[in-house]
Structure formats: structure tokens, C-alpha cells
């Protein structure tokens, strides 16, 4: 049995035929589309390493069946830099902030952390409150213990993206939706 679906992946429309309904978005990206940025840390929605944006919203791709997401628009870590309004290969503000604030060590959870942060900022619930950022980022485990840098990075990116004189950042958040 095969299941044809279409997905927009990092801005590119793709028609795919799933030979198996069991395929999750995570395994589709990693094993079939060679987009290995999203990581499999637990495969059960317990670590957040597989976080991607689906229609602009952060979700655990390990628990999302691909066939059920026919028609969805997906952003992975590989496609995030391209969404920077500065254009070219420039890092997204969240990516840049993670480097600047050392929001990672081994880097394995990092793509999930970054997409979770992009989603969190876009959800618009935290403002500049570090406690709300910590709570909002608690679905992404970091075993190296880079939480302090992660929180700093998200706050810095949030400030950069919502500053009144940086309209492109706002635009970006809207685009992601």
C-alpha cells in the first residue's frame, strides 16, 4: 500500500509517496529526505531533540505520522537560516544567539532547542520574562547542561526579534506562522 502526500519542506513543495503509513515526520526527514538536522533522542516525545516547525508551530516530529500531515509546511534547522530577512546564508537571530551565548555543548539537542525557541518566541507568551522562557523551553532536554546559555540566547533573540526598530524580525515571526 502506498500513500501519496505533498509537503512543503523548507519552502520547497515536494510530492512524496510513502510506501508505509508508519513513517513519522522525523524518520521521513532523516531517512528519506536526508535532512538529518532533526535528531532522534528518544523517539517518544520525551526529549524534544526532534522538534520542527509544522505550519509554523513547534512539535515533536517523532510522534507525528507523516501521512497525517499531508499538505503541511515544515521548517527544519536546515531551512531556518534561509528564513533570515537579511538573506543569504545569514544565521537566523536565534541561531546566532545560540552561538554567542554558548547555548549548547555537544550540539545534539541544539536543532530541536533552536526550533523550539523560534516556536516559543512566535507563540508570544513569554515576553522578556526569563522564568517563562525556562518553562517554555522545558520540553527540550539538554544532557550537557547548557540551560543557562539557552535561556540567555532565547532572551537575546527575543529582544532582537521583537525590537521595534527591527521590523524584519517581526515579519519573520509572522512568516513562520
Amino acid at each position: 500500500m502506498s500513500f501519496p502526500i505533498t509537503l512543503t519542506v523548507n519552502g520547497t513543495a515536494r510530492s512524496l509517496v510513502l510506501e508505509d503509513a508508519r513513517v513519522t515526520l522525523l524518520d521521513l526527514l532523516r531517512e528519506r529526505l536526508d535532512l538529518t538536522g532533526a535528531k532522534k533522542g528518544c523517539d517518544r516525545g520525551q526529549c524534544g531533540a526532534c522538534t520542527i516547525l509544522v505550519d509554523g508551530v513547534r512539535v515533536n516530529s517523532c510522534l507525528a505520522l507523516a501521512v497525517s500531515h499531508d499538505g503541511a509546511s515544515i521548517t527544519t534547522i536546515e531551512g531556518l537560516a534561509g528564513t533570515n530577512p537579511a538573506g543569504g546564508d545569514a544565521l537566523h537571530p536565534v541561531q546566532a544567539a545560540f552561538v554567542e551565548h554558548d547555548g549548547f555543548q555537544c550540539g545534539f539537542c541544539t536543532p530541536g532547542q533552536i526550533l523550539s525557541a523560534v516556536g516559543l518566541i512566535q507563540e508570544g507568551q513569554t515576553g522578556g520574562d526569563p522564568e517563562r522562557v525556562r518553562e517554555g523551553m522545558s520540553g527540550n532536554l539538554c544532557r550537557c547542561g547548557a540551560y543557562a546559555g539557552i535561556t540567555e540566547a532565547v532572551l537575546a533573540a527575543h529582544a532582537a526579534m521583537t525590537a521595534p526598530d527591527v521590523l524584519p524580525g517581526r515579519q519573520l515571526a509572522e512568516d513562520a506562522a
Binding site: K39, E78, Q95, F104, P111
Partner: peptide, 26 residues
């Protein structure tokens, strides 16, 4: 800042399970 930072924040950093030689099976 980390020299490997840009690779790690863009997904370009490839970890062991990210490699896919021709003909790979699971």
C-alpha cells in the same frame, strides 16, 4: 565562541547516525 558553533546551529554538524552510505539498510 565555538568554532563548531555555526555547524551545530544549522544542522550541518553530522553525528554518527546522520550518515547514509549508498545501499544503507537498517
Amino acid at each position: 565562541t565555538r568554532r563548531d558553533g555555526p555547524d551545530k546551529v544549522t544542522g550541518a554538524a553530522r553525528y554518527s547516525a546522520d550518515f547514509k552510505p549508498e545501499g544503507l539498510v537498517h
